[in-house]
Design a protein around this nucleic acid. Structure first.
Lengths: 217, 217, 217, 217
DNA sequence: AATGAATGAGAATTCATTCAT
DNA sequence: GATGAATGAATTCTCATTCAT
């Protein structure tokens, strides 16, 4: 997992798609504009102008303005919760991490990298979440199932191990996510400047969590 | 501090204002619509219709659509950071709280109540923050000054007391805010249903933080 | 006839009217605003604000916005053409002016003073003329009747006298009016600064006209 | 120089532009409506309806209502003063007109034709001048420079020749313009009917001016 | 007579979307 | 696939006017 070159990750994914150069430009420009000024405040004509294509071209591939949004968010959404659940967790198991702090450090670093690599998409995504309550509910359900399911099982293992306090999994998950967010959210909202040392930050966060979540005497 | 009746707090404030009934209705309806569907997706004609007034009336008092937003957020914004700094902190000192966990419990409960009482405004406020980067920067600066200033001094006292780990204040503040947010953000995003037990939640959060932030042996 | 204090002439007329102070203020402010920015670009609320009255008051006396315009122009319109025809011309006869240049000097000076005293009203009036073709036609008819009637008779006398070239009265009137306008129009359009020496200007204009309109050898 | 077919001159210019038929219709209709009822009293929806296009189309090309006005006036404005100064005056010199009356006849006829060919635009232009004092000042400055500069030199030649009275150039220019205006302004204000015999009128005007401006004995 | 909140009919302008070329 | 002129519904905002107090 490389922390570098995270910036161009989206561009590479673009180039591997079947889209023409112009359609790629539309997506790329749209992502930047949506992140900067919001979906509603970005007009399709502005997208066309900045992408150097005609107004018609914007709609040729993506049909509607919402279609562009979907094309931007769908690939990422599938990675947020599911990847956390499947690839990510199995990778955990295979690497035989039985150490809670090690697990936390790894998991937090992984999600930090993901968040930074998809900073703009996440910003757009958060906008959408706020705007559409039905989405919010859907996300909440998925999260709850994740915490109750695979993630819960994992945490439960650490509780049985005597490495994790005996609180409800929901409460534990809350603190983990909150701590992760305290590093990631400012990065997403602020923009470029942010030179977050991911290695250090994930170790710090894990350290704090391990202490706060240690079994009570 | 009353946790109940939080819902009608805004309505009461409205009635004490100098606005006519109709203008109050405009503000009240606007807050709900902005929170539900976002500022950009709410048309002034929809506001007028739901408030039972003419379109002209909407603009008579607030001049522009942004004027309505300002009328909704300004009173609250002045309470977010400053109140945390002045009234709130002095109240802490006068009540002679030398106990870190006590301090945390009180502070967290206070901000939770504030957040729940201003749930809708905060939702609208968050939308604005995301939309206008210049605002974000302003908020960030204020926060940093708060943490470096009064809040930092307070935390430093606890460090000297031997009740708080010797990490940079910024890091400590990060975890406190992150933990608080982990309770409050879902409430803000979800809507009414969520019946958070503020007393219990603030005790839980403070307890977790005290363990995570205890001085290292 | 005083050339001085021409500025306050309208204000004095106002004070002699039966209008209340507030209604006078409405008229006075309206005249200035109409002259500066045009009738259409002046809103009744702006009038109210500048006049220091409520929006309702503006309509109490004058019923409609057009009513204000009418109240401003009517008194002046009755002086433009008719006065030229009646009071003015009879005064000429009684003073026994048989000298063409004397007549011209007097007549031009009289109309110059009138124009300068009613500068703002004339500006508003010209705007109206341009806007409403039906008015234009009415004015044109009146003028033509004046020139064919009393003014024509007068000019004809000078032709019989051998002091005026034997051209159609219409043509002669054209040059007289054009020459007068060449002094007055810039004053009306420009504003205050222009300090026209009415005495000198009327003598100059008359002198030029007498030479141009002298009988051909 | 053809006096006939002046009516369709604007239409021809339109067709030679790069505008689509619909955009041409917008301009053409706008010119007529602005001239008839004034800029402020003409709504963009009325323009759209009469031009047989959608409201969106009106703004696609010209961005704003003022943009339409600009598109109508700009081409003409560049001809009013400058052309009088450059093309026009040089043409005078090359044709070796040393006769003052000949010069006047030519110049007046030229400007009459120009005014009649741009009757509607001039009407709209005059509306603008009255409305925007800052424009008025600009025009006045240009005119003054023209009269002080090339036009003044020319007039001075005639004074040296002994063909022109020894008055200040400003005064002479005033009478020339006033006399020209006395023919042209009624045409502009009245509308179509006016069948002005340009040949005859320019000869008449020049003749009158030559007499009024002859050197004093 | 005066007030000023309220009205509602438009006004200019924007914008996602379509479609003939 | 790409273009860009054209669309028309929707949006924010203005303004003359009314009316209860």
């Amino acid at each position: 997992m490389q922390v570098n070159n995270v910036e161009e990750l989206f561009e590479k994914t673009l180039q591997e798609s079947e889209l023409t150069k112009k359609q790629q430009a539309v997506l790329s420009v749209s992502l930047n504009l949506f992140a900067e000024q919001g979906f509603d405040r970005t007009s399709t004509s502005e997208i066309a102008k900045q992408a150097g294509v005609s107004e018609g071209t914007v709609f040729k591939q993506f049909k509607t303005k919402d279609g562009i949004l979907k094309a931007l968010l769908d690939p990422m959404i599938e990675q947020v919760v599911p990847m956390a659940a499947s690839e990510f967790l199995t990778e955990i198991n295979t690497s035989q991490i039985s150490d809670f702090e090690g697990f936390l450090t790894y998991a937090i670093k992984d999600r930090m990298v993901f968040a930074l690599a998809n900073r703009k998409q996440l910003k757009v995504f958060v906008q959408e979440i706020i705007r559409k309550p039905e989405i919010t509910q859907g996300i909440a359900d998925k999260l709850q199932r994740l915490i109750a399911g695979p993630m819960g099982d994992l945490l439960h293992q650490f509780q049985v191990n005597g490495q994790l306090v005996d609180w409800p999994v929901m409460r534990i998950a809350r603190y983990i996510v909150g701590t992760l967010a305290s590093y990631v959210v400012p990065q997403i909202l602020m923009g470029i400047d942010a030179n977050l040392d991911v290695e250090q930050a994930s170790r710090d966060a894990a350290h704090f969590l391990v202490r706060g979540l240690a079994p009570e005497k």
